[in-house]
Nucleic acid binder design. Structure first.
Length: 190
DNA sequence: TGCCGGATCCTG
DNA sequence: AGGATCCGGCAA
């Protein structure tokens, strides 16, 4: 069933881990597009120097600081879109970046990587601020699954963030073929 | 108002 | 290894 707002209104690392294995569902454009979330990153709040919210409340981060259970979508390098889901109570400035999907149905193209994920799911900046309790874009718990084996690793592309760059806030399903990058070292399981 | 650089991806 | 290509954030 569709995840309710209280799922998102919790500790960001917990939400990130629990999102692994959930289904991201996109409707409103022909056949339903559905993929299994296999890789995420947690951006835990304004004190997290890798997070856009560390700049404070601005036009761009307004949605991140808004209520949980909404989409935060931004444009990166002028080309690609990235999809996040806002977590924790309003005013906290935290979100989980969805980095890769295992295609399940209705998906054409690559879903390994946040930009490719958005392209395959038909998500752009018009989705910024969208309420995930609606029918256009939401996350569903497929139920009936065992607890997945999760690997924790440093986040990708945040080397500018000092010690926060090293924090193991990237999570993915161990041995899943759809994860965007393979680690050389399998550190930080958990 | 101008400039710098990025939570990426593709090609060479 | 480097280019694409837009816009947010900050300095002036």
């Amino acid at each position: 069933m569709k995840l309710a707002r209280d799922f998102y209104d919790r500790d960001t690392e917990t939400v990130a881990r629990e999102l692994l294995g959930m289904h991201l569902v996109r409707r409103g454009t022909g056949a339903e597009r559905r993929g299994r979330i296999v890789e995420v990153e947690a951006y835990v709040g304004a004190h997290d120097l890798a997070s856009h919210s560390s700049k404070g409340v601005t036009a761009r981060t307004r949605v991140m600081y808004g209520p949980p259970g909404h989409a935060y979508v931004y444009l990166i390098y002028g080309i690609h879109h990235c999809l996040n889901v806002v977590t924790e109570p309003e005013g906290h400035g935290a979100a989980v970046l969805l980095r890769a999907l295992e295609p399940l149905s209705g998906i054409a193209g690559n879903t390994r990587g946040p930009g490719l994920l958005c392209r395959a799911m038909g998500i752009d900046r018009s989705f910024d601020g969208l309420d995930l309790s609606g029918d256009l874009l939401f996350i569903e718990d497929p139920g009936g699954r065992d607890a997945p084996e999760i690997v924790a690793a440093p986040r990708i592309g945040v080397d500018y963030a000092g010690e926060w760059a090293q924090r193991p806030l990237r999570f993915y399903l161990r041995d899943n073929a759809w994860v965007s990058r393979r680690d050389r070292s399998n550190r930080g399981r958990g």
